[in-house]
Amino acid sequence: SIEEEIKKAEEAKEKGKTFIHGDFVATTEELLDELLKRLRKKL
Rank of each mutant, 00 (worst) to 15 (best):
E14F: 07
T27E: 09
E3T: 09
I2K: 03
S1Q: 08
E14V: 10
G16Y: 08
E29W: 14
E3Q: 11
R40S: 06
F19C: 00
T27H: 14
S1M: 10
E10T: 09
F24R: 00
K15H: 13
G22S: 05
I2Y: 04
E14P: 01
E5S: 09
L31H: 09
K13C: 13
A9E: 02
E3D: 07
D23W: 13
S1K: 09
E4L: 10
I6V: 03
E14G: 09
K8Y: 05
L43P: 00
E4K: 07
E3G: 07
K13P: 02
L39I: 09
D33T: 06
L39F: 02
G22V: 07
L43M: 05
K37W: 06
E10D: 03
A12H: 05
R40N: 11
T28K: 01
T28R: 02
I6G: 02
E34M: 08
E5T: 15
T28H: 03
G16H: 06
E29Y: 11
K41D: 15
D33R: 10
E34F: 09
E3V: 11
E3F: 11
L35T: 00
G22T: 03
F19W: 09
I20G: 02
E34N: 04
I2P: 03
D33F: 08
L32R: 00
K42M: 15
R38E: 14
L32V: 04
A26L: 07
E10S: 05
H21L: 12
V25Y: 09
K42P: 06
G16N: 08
E14I: 12
E30H: 11
K13A: 04
T28E: 03
E4Y: 07
E14R: 14
E14Q: 10
E34Y: 06
L43C: 14
H21P: 04
E30P: 03
R40A: 08
T28A: 06
F24K: 00
D33E: 12
F19Y: 13
T27V: 07
K37I: 12
R38L: 15
E4D: 12
L39Q: 00
D33W: 10
K42R: 08
A26M: 08
F19D: 02
S1F: 11
E11V: 06
K37P: 00
K17M: 14
D33H: 06
E29A: 15
F19K: 02
T18N: 07
K13E: 02
L32E: 00
D23A: 12
F19G: 06
S1W: 15
K42L: 15
H21C: 15
S1D: 11
E3S: 07
E14T: 08
R40I: 12
D33A: 08
K15R: 08
V25M: 12
G22C: 15
E29D: 10
I6D: 05
T18Q: 11
L32Y: 10
E11H: 05
K41T: 07
G22E: 10
D23H: 09
A9W: 07
E29G: 12
L43F: 08
H21Y: 15
K15E: 08
K37C: 15
E29C: 15
E34W: 12
L32N: 00
E30Q: 09
L39N: 00
K41Q: 13
E29Q: 13
L31A: 11
K7P: 04
A12N: 02
K13L: 11
A12Q: 03
T28M: 13
E11L: 09
L31P: 01
L36A: 01
V25K: 05
E14L: 14
L43A: 03
V25S: 06
I2M: 06
A9M: 06
I6Q: 04
I2R: 01
A12W: 05
A26K: 02
